[in-house]
Design a protein around this nucleic acid. Structure first.
Length: 359
DNA sequence: CACCCGTGGGA
DNA sequence: TTCCCAAGGGT
């Protein structure tokens, strides 16, 4: 075992983070078993998402669906409603598909090998390696954003990402031990999250600083080298909050794929098009006494959206509307992405007020 | 490989 | 304020 590996495992034993889905070295030694379902669920939630954002969702999911069979028995809509607010909603759709596949094709147990895991929806290179390593003790290289940063600094890799990926993977594989590969992977990620951070890394307390080429020869903060990013375009559109005489809001479903796929929304113009959508009352889904209710801005990963919000009240029941009516106090139970909560809050300020058990 | 796909928190 | 980014995957 290489010195870096041994030092990191020792550091992990005393400095590892306490996380709801994690079995600590002490707990492992005491015989506590790893549950592949919980590892898988946490890994999907953690994709491009912070630990603090994931914690409440993870706890709610395992409370509601304690096993993969429970999740497979749930509807996709129920899963989307529980996922609402966490973002990247294709993860939730694939989560459900994956649970179905595990139960239908694998007898309700996750496969333990990389290829079997990668064949499942929503599981790619990283997640397959993470599950194989953490849940099944397989000595495979787990490479996430933390590992890319730590390895590129340890070996002062000047090749920009993502081209450096194969070299980083080879370095990580060479460090990964046959014993405790899962703890080692988690140790690398904990190091990246708490010490070998993107900005101002705490090298003075780093357990592997002696072996860090970037620290010895230049500046760790210069790594990893990344390609320049593009500017974020702005898109415009309008959203229409229709309120019935019974204090209900008209919602509809977005298409199954693409941005916010399968989630709920109020009627809007086609702002997902590359060209800016209409922003005026003339673009309303039906005639009513629409009044301006403000503007909201929402930042997506690859564009900024500015929506003009319009509101109309006392809308009579109409039979051929594409959607459904929801009581204002029941809106929180719907699969509303954050941007739609912003839109509705602009038109109905008390819609998501934090009082009462239904809100 | 390049692009699409959310959100909220921190510097 | 503005920018960065956090345990990536699908196409």
């Amino acid at each position: 075992m290489q010195p870096i590996t041994a030092n990191l495992l020792d550091w992990y034993d005393s400095h590892h983070r306490i996380l709801p889905w994690r079995i600590s070295p002490r707990e492992q030694k005491a015989g506590k078993a790893v549950d592949p379902y919980r590892i898988w669920l946490s890994e999907i939630m953690l994709q491009q998402t912070t630990v603090e954002a994931v914690k409440p969702y993870f706890n709610a999911f395992v409370e509601k669906w304690p096993t993969v069979k429970d999740l497979a028995a749930a509807s996709q809509d129920a899963v989307l409603r529980a996922w609402a607010g966490l973002g990247y909603y294709s993860r939730a759709r694939n989560l459900k598909k994956c649970a179905d596949a595990v139960c239908a094709d694998h007898g309700g147990s996750f496969p333990s090998d990389i290829n079997g895991l990668k064949s499942l929806p929503g599981i790619g290179d990283y997640t397959a390696a993470a599950i194989a390593s953490i849940a099944f003790n397989r000595p495979v290289a787990v490479v996430d954003g933390n590992v890319e940063r730590v390895i590129s600094r340890l070996y002062a890799i000047d090749t920009p990402l993502p081209a450096a990926k194969s070299e980083i993977r080879a370095r990580m594989q060479a460090l990964t031990p046959d014993e405790r590969p899962g703890d080692f992977a988690q140790a690398m990620m904990d190091l990246g999250a708490t010490i070998c951070t993107p900005k101002r890394p705490a090298c003075f307390v780093c357990p592997v600083k002696e072996g860090c080429e970037a620290l010895q020869t230049s500046d760790p903060e210069l790594y990893p080298v990344k390609a320049a990013k593009k500017e974020r375009p702005i898109r415009l559109g309008a959203a229409f909050v229709a309120v019935s005489a019974d204090n209900e809001v008209l919602l509809r479903s977005r298409t199954e794929t693409g941005l916010l796929g399968g989630m709920a929304e109020v009627p809007t113009t086609a702002w997902t098009a590359r060209q800016d959508g209409a922003t005026d009352i003339a673009s309303a889904p039906f005639a009513a006494d629409w009044i301006a209710a403000g503007n909201i801005t929402h930042i997506f990963t690859h564009f900024e959206l500015r929506l003009a919000v319009f509101k109309a009240g006392n809308i009579p029941a109409m039979q051929n509307l594409d959607g459904w009516w929801v009581k204002i106090e029941k809106l929180s139970a719907e699969a509303l992405p954050t941007i739609m909560k912003k839109v509705i809050a602009a038109a109905i300020p008390h819609a998501f007020a934090k009082r009462g058990k239904d809100v």
